[in-house]
Design a protein around this nucleic acid. Structure first.
Lengths: 239, 239
DNA sequence: TGCCCTTCTTAACATTTGTTGCGTTTGCCC
DNA sequence: GGGCAAACGCAACAAATGTTAAGAAGGGCA
């Protein structure tokens, strides 16, 4: 059931109406598989569908002139990484599959028709893009102000909270299938430096990363380090 | 007429419907003045109104535990910096007046009622928050991947394009009333380093910054440096 | 005018991060 | 099982950026 992670998230962040969700689930979609490193959407493209990540991980990224690449966001099952194309024809970044992925494509027309009928669906989607924006703002803080050591801890806690919501965290262990180079691209540092910082985190007994599997070694130390304030994820309906 | 810059922007980015704009202009609002450095919204607050910047500059910012501050976005007349509170009760950052400011506050209720009546207004606002999100993503790239020298050039070109749209650029000169420390906070570097980079830009004959007034010395050099691709601002309706 | 505060400016030095290079490990495919 | 490519690990050195400190310049106000 491809809708489960999205519905889980929408219910948590917005207390979604069940009939709105049912109407969403009734929409036609096309499943497409992507392989690791395959480009889903290219900068400048004008998609006519929105995609829902049914399985796997994707990232948004931008490449600057000298070839350096910045990862803008990490997307997990249940995410709708190009909802903005309901309003703007072109994507202004790349969307790339990090792992083998299954994506459900839903036509803009079908979505727009549904939004026209049920304004609650439009509100849910608007909220979803607002959370996406809040995550981007937190990333600006992460890259701009936190030391690489803390930055990596914060990034990993953010991902853990989002993965926990869709049931992907077991025994303090979870998958974030990025290479060290890709973690570096998310943090604005090189792979060499990412390696240095990971070593420190391992030696300090905070956490361990092995080929995309994160294991928390000391929850208390991690919390103290990351100083994670998850309000921006809007995971508790009261916020 | 407080609506002019907003309408100018909405027309350019979305080809707004005139009747939607008229209905907006008919909404009741309260004008409030803020002084330089005064906090408009504090992290955690639950505003019941959205604000429109009628005059002056504001910034969103977040402060991390060790006291360092990151500026998340710079807002100019015509911006609606807390539109997201139509959907989420709390702000997750501070909103601070950089200069003496005049803000128009519009009640959420009035806005929501209007959106209920005229879905085009809701669409415009949704689009506006999407552009805001696109700007945040570009800032992640700026802070993460560009050298401080290029980063400052890029930031200034972005602001120039946005200011130009509302008629605030004259003869390659315009106001961005940030101190060097605040420019640093927007770029994730210290004021000392900002000063170093500004000196280089001045010596290289690219641009000059004096107490918040920017003067472009060599447009060609600036363009070549910043490699500014303004598509993310959605200023041409065709994008 | 003179005082005071903020901002700007610069230098010397410390720390972080990037660059280059190379050896090791891992996973995949024949 | 052997070979290959990608990812990991690490060290030496270079470059960018932070820290600290101090003086200069500017603006507001008595």
């Amino acid at each position: 059931m491809i809708w489960a992670p999205l519905f889980q998230r929408l219910k948590t962040t917005t207390g979604a109406d069940d009939r709105d969700l049912e109407s969403l689930a009734a929409l036609p979609f096309t499943l497409r598989n992507f392989r690791e490193n395959q480009t889903v959407l290219r900068d400048g493209e004008q998609p006519t569908e929105c995609c829902l990540i049914a399985d796997g991980f994707c990232v948004r990224s931008k490449t600057v002139v000298d070839g350096r690449r910045q990862i803008l966001s990490i997307h997990i099952p249940g995410d709708l990484p190009n909802l903005q194309n309901l309003h703007f024809p072109s994507v202004d970044h790349d969307l790339i599959a990090l792992s083998d992925c299954t994506l459900a494509f839903i036509a803009h027309k079908a979505l727009n028709d549904l939004i026209g009928e049920r304004s609650g669906v439009g509100d849910m989607f608007w909220r979803d893009t607002l959370v996406d924006a809040a995550v981007s703002r937190e990333w600006i803080v992460n890259v701009g102000q936190r030391s690489t050591y803390v930055r990596l801890a914060h990034l990993i806690v953010e991902l853990r909270e989002r993965l926990r919501l869709i049931g992907r965290v077991i025994d303090n262990t979870f998958e974030i299938p990025l290479t060290q180079e890709q973690f570096g691209e998310a943090m604005g540092v090189t792979s060499v430096h990412t390696n240095r910082i990971l070593r420190e985190l391992r030696i300090d007994g905070v956490l361990e990363l092995q080929r995309g599997t994160v294991r928390i070694l000391n929850e208390h130390k991690l919390q103290e380090l990351a100083q994670f304030d998850g309000r921006y994820l809007q995971m508790s309906p009261s916020s």
